[in-house]
Design a protein around this nucleic acid. Sequence first.
DNA 1: GAAGATTGATAAATCAATCTTA
DNA 2: TAAGATTGATTTATCAATCTTC
Lengths: 151, 151
Amino acid sequence: LTAQVLTDTPAPRPPAVAALAALLRAHAAVTRLASARLQAEHGLSLNDYEALRLLVEAEGRRLRRVDLARSLALTPSGVTRLLEGLEEAGLVERATCPYDLRVTYAQLTELGAERLRELSCGQDGSVRALFEERLSRAEIEELARLLERLT
Amino acid sequence: LTAQVLTDTPAPRPPAVAALAALLRAHAAVTRLASARLQAEHGLSLNDYEALRLLVEAEGRRLRRVDLARSLALTPSGVTRLLEGLEEAGLVERATCPYDLRVTYAQLTELGAERLRELSCGQDGSVRALFEERLSRAEIEELARLLERLT
DNA sequence: GAAGATTGATAAATCAATCTTA
DNA sequence: TAAGATTGATTTATCAATCTTC
């Protein structure tokens, strides 16, 4: 019998397991803080906002739904539901592709672009505050690089 | 009129905004992969597993619900719901505190400890594979440190 | 058959409100 | 009055199955 067995100590966590736990915690904490104002004042979720940003940055302000799914790391049905809400709010429109009838585009409307311009200053401000209170600029960039490589 | 206005280019993302987007993406991607086997084979979510780990590492294999909430970055009601499932499965029991009747402990059962021992090898293996395919050991540790500081 | 998209049923978390005990 | 915990209603995502078009 080893000391390990006698004291019944659970095995220590491998670094990857600790990193996953940290990722879960950080996501829960950051998401709650960053989405509170967005939700209360504009009725949008973080992924709603992220989708609008991706659209305004895209060629022609439109993206195929399947590409939006990859960029947001959502399933196809997740994207369908997310866009339902944005379409009801008039921020995004459906558009078909004349060359491939399977695909549907999500097209940012002029209202959607306006709304995003109004939003982004305040939203980016609170996100920056959240991160910059806790990490230096170099650390924030390093964090983003590492997270990107996980996706 | 500046070139900025003429080309209607959206403002570039501040690093913190890019980091948040990366966090959302990484969480969605990693969560799906890491929870698939756990869910299919054992009917547990990632937070279920994380809660069991926290309990087995805790003094007396028990934690107050409010402390579990902080450690998991969940709300009190989130913890109540999570523990409902673990209690039904017999992995966790309720225990009262004789000195303060407001608090309820979550107490790991012997069955819960066994189940966790069976699980953890395979689960940690797939989590390690997921992270170690994409990042070096030093990078994984750096990532965990940065994420912890966000919480 | 595979790719893109949607639908129905379900899971996991939230918030706001409430209850009990300190 | 505050702290710990729970409940009801709701949101956001998932999966499995399906439909249409390539």
